[in-house]
Write a protein that binds this DNA or RNA. Structure first.
Lengths: 336, 336
DNA sequence: GAAAAACCTGAAAGCGCTTACAATAAGCTA
DNA sequence: TAGCTTATTGTAAGCGCTTTCAGGTTTTTC
């Protein structure tokens, strides 16, 4: 069942069928209706490969995430997919992991599928000197299709970023803790992503502005964002003194909370804890975690909007970097 | 940069280039090397559309999930994507929601992209009478490509299912509760999926075998799997008496746990609670939830294996229904 | 009512690749 | 070395669609 069959059945040429299918206005209403009814009746669907061959696009965008079994990423993909689908685009998903080599290979595999654009969620490293090669593959990809980065910053032509203001949010949180008299604030992270780096900067800035020293011993990094990993890590550092925790992820905060409760501490009395991402874990914890909401939905909406604009050829109206401010969600693990 | 350019540069015909690219063995080693080096040098990638036009496949499989911002689905997609990617397939992701009409439209959109196979995760309804139209679109899809269902049961030609034995697992759990003297066991669910139905059957069977009545009042359904929804629902039914909870999802169990703790009850002393899926939420809760692990990874591995076999033309060796037994993970909300 | 303009439609040339078939070169056998 | 088989390569015919260009109709204009 192809365009020739339809043309024959409708008594027109394939050119006319093609015009009808593509909604060209240069077809008389009468012919159009006839062709449409034949198409309907025959259940004809154009062959996307043939379409793609001519047009060199298949209305597909690639989404690359380090991993999808992570609420943050999954939520991002959910927003993106929904929004793009609504606009007639399908999403090819690729879980690249955190390894540079795999990222590169996944990216080129996606590009070989002739995607119209590429979206990267998280996991890009800051663009300072040495690590610039970490993002070279992104700039390479951007030479073929526009690239959109969510919560990562990559400088380059044809790459657009939407990031939440994690630095500022973490700054505010840390500042609030200090104002409530907290002296030793533990910074707990699980990655070196751009966003994690920004959070750390905010944390340090608040300490500095308050005249506190930035202590290396109070910055802990967990191998993976798993509650038990955190617990084990804190157990390892059991001599460490701290009266509050700023975590870059809810799961980390949940781990710290568990550990504190197990030690018989009062939360938030003896220790205040702040998570990040405002996920289920924040609500599942007992007491429920105060958490920063990075406004992921907004980031995704913005990204899709920008993507559609760029694909429509309206590059000029799209900012290279779009910053969305984060929001504190106060719950029970802090006294503010 | 196309096959003609490469052919010219290497001084061979396009047929030979094509053979080299596709790894045909009918090319002399010498020519092969020459062509390969030209391809390498020129950075040539075959145009997938043109390939697709000829072969009518693009090595792509469609994955349809009701929603991806749900740990269970996200984890499934993660396993699937990784496994398929490793075998040279890309995944087009589609989040269809729970609405039949949307499912149908998403499925046909995927099919129009000429996917090689379709994978559905969860959310199919049992095939009994009235609701068979709920799965008609699946059988329709199966007429075009093989369809693989994870944790759903659909009868039809060219559709294969991998399901975990939720009925048995829930039966065992309920039986254990009964053996520990629990008399009024609350069944908490959030969906009518095949899998949820199976769980309910297991629950009922255990009650029946123990000579207990199956009480409608002890089966509660929450609109969505959100901790607060559960709390609100239980508050609404606050007169209801029960000494244990069997939930079809960890989040539901977490909600029940929160409610019980808020009422000052001892867990598992006054009330035992069992979750399902063995997710982060189970571990994040305090005390940690006993939960059933549905062996999702196994289901996904099986599915991919079957898929590859079917695409290789080895239909015969693939079972129409593959059952994986579930596993109880004992933690702190039960006394067994 | 004839020329000009506007409107529709069709023929045909690609798009870049795979592959059946034909052709040629090379290797054997007797 | 003639005659045959085998290994390698090339030719050309699609795959199903979009779109340019040209031809044919109808409508408008004076």
């Amino acid at each position: 069942m192809n365009i020739y069959d339809i043309a024959r059945m409708a008594g027109v040429s394939i050119a006319t069928v093609s015009r009808v299918v593509n909604g060209s206005d240069k077809v008389s209403e009468k012919t159009k209706q006839r062709v449409l009814s034949v198409i309907e009746e025959a259940g004809y669907t154009p062959n996307v490969f043939a379409q793609g061959l001519g047009l060199n696009t298949m209305h597909t965008v690639g989404i690359m995430v380090p991993r999808i079994d992570d609420m943050y990423m999954a939520t991002a993909v959910s927003y993106l997919e929904q929004n793009l689908h609504k606009n007639g685009y399908e999403c090819i998903l690729s879980c690249s992991g955190f390894d540079l080599e795999r990222k590169q290979s996944h990216a080129s595999m996606l590009l070989s599928k002739r995607i119209d654009a590429l979206i990267l969620v998280g996991s890009t490293y800051a663009g300072n000197g040495a690590s610039s090669q970490q993002t070279d593959y992104i700039r390479a990809a951007a030479r073929e299709v526009p690239v959109f980065v969510i919560n990562g910053l990559v400088e380059g032509d044809n790459v657009y970023a939407s990031i939440s203001d994690d630095r500022k949010a973490t700054f505010e949180v840390t500042k609030s803790l200090i104002e409530r008299g907290r002296k030793r604030i533990l910074f707990l992270t699980d990655s070196q992503s751009y966003s994690a780096q920004q959070k750390m900067k905010g944390y340090e800035q608040a300490l500095t502005e308050a005249g506190y020293p930035v202590l290396g011993e109070l910055k802990l990094r967990v191998a993976r964002s798993k509650i038990h990993y955190v617990r084990d890590l804190l157990l390892e550092y059991k001599a460490l003194q701290y009266d509050s925790v700023v975590a870059t992820e809810d799961t980390l905060a949940a781990g710290a909370l568990k550990y504190a409760l197990a030690k018989g501490m009062q939360v938030p009395g003896d220790i205040s804890i702040v998570g990040y991402n405002n996920s289920v874990v924040a609500v599942a914890s007992e007491p429920e975690l105060t958490s920063v909401d990075g406004r992921l939905e907004q980031l995704c909406t913005d990204t899709c909007e920008h993507l559609l604009q760029v694909l429509k050829g309206e590059k000029e109206s799209v900012p290279a970097v779009d910053i969305v401010s984060a929001m504190l969600v106060k719950r029970c693990t802090t006294d503010f």
